[in-house]
């Protein structure tokens, strides 16, 4: 080992050291056994970790937190189980899309009957609508989005079950306040009233990043497409810290419970700042805020 760490008075590597390094690599290249040993040492532990905390749990995991009732019971009552033939697939896909559409419409109808403002996320058209009584009052164009692969991996039956009822807001984190409240104490007399600032608040410019935590493990993250100002980095760090805490789990949890069923289903949407702000400000507090999703077409 000394030969690898020797330095001359100026702190430079000596020729001897360079020779030793070259010797080491030429020696290593000439020994397949050593290379194999190195690979085994380097890969065994990560491979075991991947197998135990990623692959095996993923194989056993149900992509949706809810599961549709099995048809097996119903099938067992049939004298002969009917199976779909390939030529019927286009019709069946069409039926699945119609089921999806019907469920989406039924959800909208249910929320239209209520007085609250609600959100309609339409992934097919890449829009997030703010709706009141069935009327989309603002259509927010989604510039881009990332949806959890669980939506793709899920069976139609399970996905339908998950989307069957509107999602209810459970919590939220945001870079902007829900209500920009200003507290004013009533002046005692006209002189004190005259001293009160008369200039209204300027339109808000704060960066809009927020996360809505719904029931059924749905997490919707919305962020503005506009770049943030350097002075807002502190605000963003604080938000990011709170956001990370949604998904953070201890090392022990990651190993002992690699994929708990309550893992969030994350959908990230990017849109312009005005739309994002309008969405966050318009939705009611917590359990009164509802969301419905129209997922991608079944044939996509």
């Amino acid at each position: 080992m000394n030969s690898f760490s020797q330095k001359d008075s100026n702190g430079q590597h000596t020729d001897k050291q360079q020779n030793a390094i070259l010797w080491f690599f030429s020696w290593f290249i000439r020994r397949p056994g050593m290379q194999l040993l190195f690979l085994i040492i380097a890969i065994t532990l990560p491979a075991i970790i991947i197998a135990l905390t990623v692959l095996i749990p993923a194989a056993a995991f149900s992509p949706m937190p809810v599961k549709a009732e099995s048809n097996d019971k119903a099938d067992s009552t049939l004298t002969k189980k009917v199976e779909a033939t390939a030529d019927q697939h286009p019709l069946y896909l069409n039926i699945l899309n119609k089921e999806q559409k019907l469920s989406f419409f039924q959800n909208r109808l249910e929320l239209a009957r209520q007085d609250s403002i609600y959100l309609v996320l339409n992934l097919q058209d890449s829009v997030l609508d703010i709706e009141i009584k069935g009327l989309p009052v603002q259509r927010c164009k989604i510039q881009s989005y990332n949806a959890s692969s669980r939506l793709k991996a899920a069976q139609h039956e399970d996905l339908q079950k998950w989307l069957e009822t509107p999602f209810t807001l459970q919590g939220e984190i945001s870079t902007i306040p829900k209500v920009p409240v200003l507290l004013v104490d009533a002046p005692k007399d006209t002189t004190e009233a005259a001293k009160l600032p008369k200039k209204p608040m300027e339109p808000e410019k704060t960066a809009v990043f927020f996360t809505l935590l719904f029931d059924k493990n749905l997490v919707i993250e919305i962020e503005q497409t506009e770049t943030i100002l350097p002075e807002e980095e502190g605000l963003m760090l604080n938000y990011q810290h709170r956001f990370d805490s949604i998904f953070s789990r201890t090392l022990m949890q990651k190993i002992t419970q690699p994929m708990p069923q309550q893992l969030p289903i994350h959908i990230k949407l990017r849109m312009n700042e005005g739309d994002a702000r309008a969405i966050y400000r318009s939705i009611p507090h917590s359990k009164y805020a509802k969301l419905i999703i129209n997922p991608l077409d079944e044939s996509m």
């Binding site: 779909a84 069946y92 692969s149 069976q155 139609h156």
Partner: peptide
């Protein structure tokens, strides 16, 4: 997840059939 699970519609097709 995408390796082990895919929406092959088999269950849904059987239900419809």
């Amino acid at each position: 997840l995408l390796i082990f699970h895919s929406n092959d519609h088999a269950k849904s097709f059987d239900r419809i059939a």
